[in-house]
């Protein structure tokens, strides 16, 4: 009896914690409109794509990619808690953009987020380049940001 109560207690607590943080994103919401730059770098470090696109509040990063490039992706459903119920969000991993292809086993597209650094007059003087913590579906569209997709190799798996 003690073990059952303990098991249920721990499982409920952990699931509660899980649902609280499953949809955590370290980024702000998207801007209403603006322009972004998409950069795609192949395995040899060559910039294959470097284009600027306008977006509105109805667009997502995935929309911009799928509207302008021939892309391939893998879908995964991720459960999360919202408005009192467990629902699911689509989480997609981009496998290829144009001629740059990965298999998600030996290689993958690592996303780098270039955040503009502006001076007092709002001119971009540099970019703060950081690895994205989230996938393409959870990255907001921010005006003047650069989204770089770079092919990276991976080592095996294991746990």
């Amino acid at each position: 009896m003690r073990k059952i109560v303990l098991s249920i207690g721990v499982i409920i607590t952990m699931i509660g914690l899980f649902l609280l943080i499953i949809d955590f994103s370290p980024y702000d919401d998207s801007d209403a409109e603006g322009t972004i730059t998409i950069i795609v770098v192949d395995i040899n470090g060559h910039r294959v794509i470097e284009d600027t696109h306008a977006f509105t509040d109805e667009d997502t990063l995935f929309d911009i990619l799928s509207n302008h490039y021939n892309i391939d992706y893998r879908s995964m459903r991720v459960p999360y808690y919202q408005d009192g119920k467990i629902t699911q969000s689509m989480s997609r991993a981009i496998l290829s953009i144009g001629t740059v292809e990965t298999d998600f086993e030996q290689s993958f597209l690592k996303i780098y987020l270039h955040t503009p650094i502006v001076d007092d007059e709002d001119h971009i003087i540099d970019y703060d380049v950081r690895v994205s913590h989230v996938g393409v579906d959870h990255l907001p569209l921010k005006d003047a940001f650069v989204y770089e997709f770079r092919v990276e190799g991976v080592w095996g798996g294991g746990s």
Binding site: S7, L17, F18, P26, K110, H133, V134
Partner: peptide, 26 residues
């Protein structure tokens, strides 16, 4: 992976740690 921000990584890793914690405990 060249990640420089510790806290977002820790938060995003927590769901996987929770799964392992439940699995271990039970």
């Amino acid at each position: 992976f060249g990640i420089t921000d510790f806290w977002p990584y820790l938060m995003l890793d927590l769901p996987f740690e929770i799964i392992m914690a439940i699995s271990n405990f039970v």
